[in-house]
Design a protein around this nucleic acid. Structure first.
Length: 414
DNA sequence: TCTGGGGTCCTAGGACCC
DNA sequence: TCTGGGGTCCTAGGACCC
């Protein structure tokens, strides 16, 4: 049996953890650049704030109901997430951390699930202060479904018999299924399929033909046949990327290059932190899709590195050059990003016998950069190509403190 | 008139997730 | 005026191989 353990309103709950006076009040957390609502407390949901609502469109509601607003504080959320995961880990022989706020736990040989699972929930809530819900079922898809239903009840739902599964699936909205997004939802709705129960009654082949093999797996999982492997924990990453929207449009190639340069630096740091070399580097630019009156431009360019690597010099040089090639005058850019793929562990670096590797000095320089920035704080030393104007920097007006990660932000008790 | 068959590898694009 | 960021997987199609 699988248990899906999911934190309720995770970012909102994390913000409240060190501000208990906010319990019971409506609260939202905004995305980067304070753009969209990405988490809401129960009270904020009741005020009619929807997931993904742009902040500027719900500003009136925020003022009207005196909703507390936070910029996203990923350092805090990451730290709280580790606490939750390590607590969960005590209850399962293995857990598979699926995202910052949820994990699958494998439950084998537990005889009294209806007693054991609520006990897990009580313990984690008591140890971390973060409310969680747990759904248990024979497949991952059903465990996700059970979790959603658990959130509407007392936080726990165990689907351990075919009868319980059938009952749970019967009225479950198909658009809340794990694996059904907007596109598939539109398609299913046009055929009159609105519940998981109806979807399950379709022929297996139909799912395969219309929703690829992913849909076929989902169908099997809904019937209780595990089809999403237990062992799909890919420890090897496929890609590492850094992308950001700009606070203001960028129209100048030099400023664009500064932004891309900074993203490339962050990317190189990430790669070194994970001890990975990348073989390909892709740079992309976006205009604002929401503005029909602006000319649109979504160019991207992929470059192959002659030798896979992760030093800042090479990655910045390749990325900024690509950005300049992609740039078109007269276009208002609002986002850019750098994606690295073809990742190889540092230890497996293979040189072609004809290659002369001259990156040693650059690698040393990058390592020194990391050490200095680790000791004195990020950005103490950085590439000149990042510029110093930073007119494109992020907006985060409502950032909370680093309660668990900065000495000066630690809460004083009396 | 009429031009093979069976592969692999890579990339772009589209779907999905939180 | 203002609309996030970082991932995964699957498929189709092109390039290339013998």
């Amino acid at each position: 049996m699988f248990a899906l353990c999911d934190c309720n309103n995770f970012y909102a709950s994390a913000e409240r953890l060190f501000r208990p006076e906010l319990n019971g009040l409506p609260l939202v957390v905004l995305s980067n650049n304070d753009g969209c609502v990405i988490a809401r407390s129960e009270e904020a949901k009741q005020c009619g704030i929807k997931m993904g609502d742009p902040e500027f469109l719900v500003r009136d509601q925020i003022n009207k109901y005196n909703i507390q607003v936070f910029s996203s504080n990923y350092v805090l959320y990451g730290d709280i997430s580790e606490r939750v995961m390590s607590n969960l880990g005590r209850w399962f022989p293995r857990i598979d951390v699926y995202s910052i706020d949820e994990a699958f736990g494998w439950l084998g040989g537990v005889s009294d699930l209806h007693h054991y699972v609520p006990e897990i929930r009580r313990s984690v809530i008591s140890n971390t202060g973060i409310p969680i819900s747990i759904g248990v079922a024979p497949t991952k898809t059903l465990a996700k479904l059970a979790n959603k239903l658990a959130k509407q009840n007392n936080g726990v739902l165990v689907l351990d018999t075919p009868e319980r599964i059938t009952e749970a699936v019967h009225d479950f909205p198909v658009k809340n299924l794990w694996g059904v997004g907007q596109q598939y939802f539109n398609k299913l709705k046009s055929l009159g399929i609105e519940t998981a129960g109806q979807l399950r009654e379709m022929p297996e082949l139909w799912l395969k033909q219309n929703m690829t093999i992913v849909g076929q797996r989902m169908w099997n999982e809904l019937w209780g046949k595990p089809s999403i492997s237990i062992d799909n924990t890919p420890d090897v990453r496929k890609g590492v990327s850094v992308s950001r929207s700009f606070q203001n449009y960028i129209v100048n190639p030099d400023i664009l290059s500064e932004a891309v340069s900074m993203y490339a630096c962050r990317l190189a740091e990430k790669l070194r932190k994970e001890k990975l070399h990348c073989s390909y580097l892709q740079v992309f630019l976006y205009t604002n899709q929401h503005r029909e009156d602006h000319p649109q431009h979504f160019p991207s360019k992929t470059n192959k590195l002659s030798i896979a690597g992760n030093n800042t010099n090479d990655i910045v040089r390749i990325a900024t050059q690509a950005a300049r090639e992609l740039y078109k005058p007269g276009i208002k850019y609002r986002k850019a990003g750098v994606i690295s793929t073809g990742l190889i562990p540092e230890s497996e670096l293979q040189l072609n016998i004809f290659d002369v590797y001259d990156g040693g000095k650059k690698d040393d320089l990058s390592k020194t950069l990391d050490l200095i920035n680790l000791a004195y704080g990020r950005g103490t030393i950085r590439m000149a190509s990042e510029g110093y104007r930073k007119t494109w920097k992020l907006r985060h007006e409502y950032l909370s403190k680093g309660y668990t990660t900065r000495w000066k932000d630690i809460i004083k008790v009396k």
